[in-house]
């Protein structure tokens, strides 16, 4: 696609293995292959949803991309540079352009800091806007996320879960980032508040041309907010496609089972549920061949030995399955 602009973020062959140490000499006994060779692109202004069950590596992937944990291999091209080649101070400058929103609005705000200093801290760290100007910027940010700037001198405990998540979003917006990694930003919130935050994130994206990497296990939420979706299983991407491709016509047997397991808030909906046998195997010793073959309803001999590559099967959709 020659006329297409370069993606804002381009991840290739990303790997993160966590060593498991045993014995007196802390010898490395095995590795948890949390993220094992994944790659995807995110275009400017789009939302890429990363979905999967606990332990599939989606959070590790998000953090490795920001280099909050050091990846073991791969390239991460962000805004024209490979983040993995940057030195510490260069990375620090680049970090202004990429921010993180956390899941737990209770644990991600320092209880001893006022909202003024929480939202103003990015300016302090990067030695930007000081004094009165900083104050104005903080007030602006609070307005943008729908909080009253008059509450600036209060502490996190005086706010509800939804309001705290707004504070976290204001902090993430402070340095006008290009990319925001949102890791389960609405999972801890009540249904009615969840909708408010999802709408806020969508509004901000339009207003500031933001690009999101949205990580969640909640499939309807991911579908609603994402332009494209990547489905992870045991450290691998098994299917990538547009929201509609993934959610209306999933091709990978895992994606199909995952979607069919989502309960519908409609008692009249009779659906065929594919109930997967067994449980997710451990990422320490993932199954050989296709990692999903132990639970896959259509697996054949070949799946046990040969690992299926992620390959394009139609425009915009990649699947890693021998049988698709």
């Amino acid at each position: 696609m020659p006329d297409r602009a370069e993606p804002l973020l381009s991840v290739r062959n990303l790997k993160k293995y966590f060593p498991i140490r045993r014995g007196v000499f802390s010898r490395i006994a095995a590795y948890v292959k949390a993220v094992d060779d994944i790659g995807f692109d995110i275009n400017k202004g789009e939302t890429f949803g990363l979905v999967g069950e606990s332990g599939c590596g989606k959070t590790t992937a998000g953090r490795a991309i920001l280099r909050l944990i050091e990846p073991d291999a791969g390239t991460i091209r962000f805004d024209g540079v490979n983040l993995l080649q940057l030195r510490k101070h260069e990375l620090r400058r680049k970090r202004r352009d990429m921010q993180l929103i956390f899941q737990d609005p209770y644990a991600s705000l320092n209880p001893r800091m006022t909202i003024r200093s929480i939202v103003g801290e990015p300016f302090a760290i990067h030695r930007l806007a000081g004094g009165l100007e900083r104050e104005h910027r903080v007030a602006d940010l609070l307005n943008i996320v729908g909080l009253d700037p008059a509450m600036m001198n209060r502490y996190p405990h005086e706010f509800s879960g939804g309001q705290r998540q707004r504070i976290g979003i204001a902090r993430a917006l402070a340095l006008k980032p290009k990319l925001i990694v949102a890791d389960e930003p609405v999972s801890a919130l009540d249904v009615s508040i969840q909708a408010q935050i999802i709408n806020l994130l969508a509004d901000l994206q339009q207003q500031f041309g933001l690009t999101y990497l949205f990580i969640s296990h909640a499939i309807p939420v991911i579908e609603h907010i994402s332009t494209r979706i990547g489905v992870m299983y045991l450290g691998k991407l098994v299917e990538v496609g547009t929201s509609a491709q993934i959610c209306l016509a999933p091709k990978h047997p895992y994606t199909q089972a995952l979607l069919s397991a989502v309960p519908t808030p409609d008692p009249a909906a009779k659906k065929r549920r594919i109930v997967l046998r067994g449980e997710v195997p451990t990422p320490i010793n993932p199954p050989s061949g296709c990692r999903f073959h132990t639970r896959c309803p259509i697996a054949v001999e070949r799946c046990k030995t040969e690992e299926p590559p992620l390959r394009q099967i139609e425009a915009g959709r990649d699947v890693s399955c021998h049988l698709v």
């Binding site: 509800s160 939804g162 309001q163 009540d190 249904v191 009615s192 508040i193 969840q194 909708a195 408010q196 999802i198 709408n199 969508a202 499939i219 309807p220 939420v221 579908e223 609603h224 907010i225 547009t242 929201s243 509609a244 959610c247 209306l248 979607l259 989502v262 519908t264 808030p265």
Partner: peptide
């Protein structure tokens, strides 16, 4: 409550804002 939950299959239609219940508990 029923309107504010995103539903599976929503990408079949034009993407809209979720309807929200204003305010909080």
């Amino acid at each position: 409550l029923l309107r504010s939950v995103p539903r599976l299959g929503s990408s079949a239609q034009k993407r809209d804002r979720l309807e929200v219940i204003e305010g909080m508990v």
